[in-house]
C-alpha cells in the first residue's frame, strides 16, 4: 500500500479525532480568554493582594511545563482523592495554562494604550470602571489579536499533549492506528499534515479577522 493509499484509508478516522483536538482547543482558549482578561485587569488595576495573587499565578504557570501541569491534574489529583476524566484534566490544564499566557498578552495590550485615553474618559464623567469597559478593553481586544492568534495556534499544537493522558484526539488516534498497522512513520506523516493544514487555515482566518476589526487609519 502506498503512502497515498494509506493516507486515504486512515484519513476518516484521523479527521474524526481532529474534531476532538479542535473541541479541546476551542473550549480551552475560550476559558483562557476570560481568565486572561481577569488576570490582566487584576495585575494592572487590582489592589495589593489581588495583584500579588494574579502575578504569582501567571509567573508560576508560565515558568513550568504544560506537560507537568497536565500530569498534576491527571495523575496528581487522584492521590488526594480527586478523579477527573482524561478530557477534563486536559481541559483544565490547557485552560489554566492558556489563561496565564493570555493575561500577559492583554496586559501588554492595555499598557500600550495611551494614558490620555483614560484621562479623556474620566474628564467627561466616566467612572474608572466605565472607562475600562468602554475605552480600554475595546481597544485592548483589537491590539491583542496578533499575539492572541499565536496563542490559538500554540494551543492547537500543544493539545497533542493530551495524548499522554489518553484523550482520544488526533495524536492518540495516530498512535492507535500505528500500533495496528506498524507503519508508524507514515501514519505520523499524515497526522503532521493534518496539523499543518489546520494551522494554516486558522492563521488565514485570524488574519481576516484582524483586517476586519482594524481601526481605520491606525497602524499599517
Amino acid at each position: 500500500m502506498s503512502l497515498l493509499e494509506l493516507a486515504w484509508d486512515i484519513l476518516p478516522s484521523l479527521l474524526k479525532a481532529t474534531t476532538v483536538t479542535l473541541e479541546l482547543t476551542g473550549i480551552s482558549i475560550a476559558i483562557g480568554l476570560i481568565l486572561g482578561i481577569l488576570l490582566a485587569l487584576g495585575r494592572l488595576y487590582g489592589n495589593k493582594p489581588i495583584y500579588a495573587l494574579a502575578t504569582a499565578y501567571v509567573e508560576f504557570i508560565r515558568g513550568t511545563p504544560l506537560l507537568v501541569q497536565l500530569f498534576i491534574f491527571y495523575f496528581g489529583l487522584p492521590s488526594i482523592g480527586i478523579n477527573i476524566s482524561p478530557f477534563f484534566s486536559a481541559l483544565a490544564a490547557f485552560s489554566l495554562n492558556s489563561g496565564a499566557y493570555q493575561a500577559e498578552y492583554f496586559r501588554g495590550a492595555i499598557q500600550s494604550i495611551k494614558g490620555g485615553q483614560m484621562l479623556a474618559a474620566r474628564s467627561i464623567g466616566m467612572s474608572r470602571f466605565k472607562g475600562i469597559v468602554f475605552i480600554v478593553i475595546p481597544q485592548a481586544l483589537r491590539l491583542v489579536i496578533p499575539s492572541w492568534s499565536n496563542e490559538l495556534i500554540y494551543l492547537v499544537k500543544y493539545s497533542s499533549l493530551a495524548y499522554m493522558v489518553q484523550v482520544p484526539e488526533l495524536m492518540a488516534r495516530g498512535k492507535i492506528i500505528a500500533s495496528r498497522n506498524f507503519r508508524t512513520f507514515e501514519v505520523f506523516l499524515v497526522v503532521a499534515f493534518i496539523y499543518l493544514i489546520v494551522v494554516l487555515i486558522l492563521s488565514k482566518i485570524l488574519d481576516l479577522v484582524e483586517e476586519k476589526v482594524k481601526i481605520p487609519g491606525l497602524g499599517t
Binding site: 495611551k114 479623556a120 467627561i124
Partner: peptide
C-alpha cells in the same frame, strides 16, 4: 466632571 468640559493638548480622542 460632566459640568466641566476638558480639551487636551494631544486631543485624546478615543482611538477606536
Amino acid at each position: 466632571r460632566q459640568q466641566m468640559g476638558m480639551v487636551f493638548q494631544h486631543f485624546n480622542l478615543f482611538a477606536h
